[in-house]
Design a protein around this nucleic acid. Structure first.
Lengths: 118, 118
DNA sequence: ATAAAGTTAAACCATATGGTTTAATATTGC
DNA sequence: GCAATATTAAACCATATGGTTTAACTTTAT
């Protein structure tokens, strides 16, 4: 079993990759396409974009390394699917901060800020 | 007023900046520090990190440009605070995908069950 | 006035990113 | 066998990123 520290580093690595993958509108558009219209092969996924096929292929690989896309290779056709699990990790990370943006708890946020003063 | 298309591009720009800002563990640690212990000046924020002060200063600027940190300048002291608004945008973006990861199989099972019911 | 403190600016470096174009590699179909 | 299809690999380019060190700037304190 991994030490807690090592697992924590892994978690950080995972979040790095997932947030990095999400930080590009082309990749977000690819995820959206997969979510709305389901799995598709690389050529289909690349068609709506103005960039070259290799560019989209590289974007898909970034998504795949982040665990956000899975790939089923059948002959020469690579069928890509949405793999939403890492988004649950994002949600988990985000949930820690929910109290800070929820409007009802704005007062709490201010209180914490003031509580920091001597 | 902006056209819908222009506003959408702005949204994409915002998400690009926010996801990019979150894609670094040092910056996530800074946000966590601000959330847990409240506002602090740059030197205080930089202290726990092994990197140089200018490096942390640059990370803070990335967070600030993403809207995740606000800065109050008083003399030579820059007090940084968590600015959680953009995290609500992340949550909004993410919520579209929640049906895909929140017990998708359970939901499908319930659907099939209902469909089978007399 | 001078020194110290808090912060950023500048210049620099190595590596990553996002794109291109031109191969190369498999697989399928005639 | 041969051509077309689906995809990646490679080489390349421009720019961004994350870090460094040294310098500059402003404010505070003695």
């Amino acid at each position: 079993m991994l030490s807690s520290a090592a697992r924590h580093l892994d978690d950080d690595d995972d979040l790095d990759r997932v947030f990095r993958a999400l930080a590009d509108r082309t990749r977000r558009a690819l995820l959206h396409r997969l979510a709305c219209e389901g799995s598709a092969m690389v050529t289909e996924l690349a068609a709506p974009f103005e960039m070259s096929l290799p560019a989209v292929s590289k974007h898909l690989k970034v998504l795949e390394r982040a665990g956000l896309v899975s790939r089923d290779i059948d002959g020469r056709v690579h069928t890509c699917s949405l793999a939403p699990r890492p988004l649950a990790s994002v949600e988990a990370w985000l949930s820690f901060y929910r109290p800070f943006w929820s409007d009802t708890l704005d007062a709490l946020a201010r209180f914490v800020e003031q509580d920091d003063a001597p």
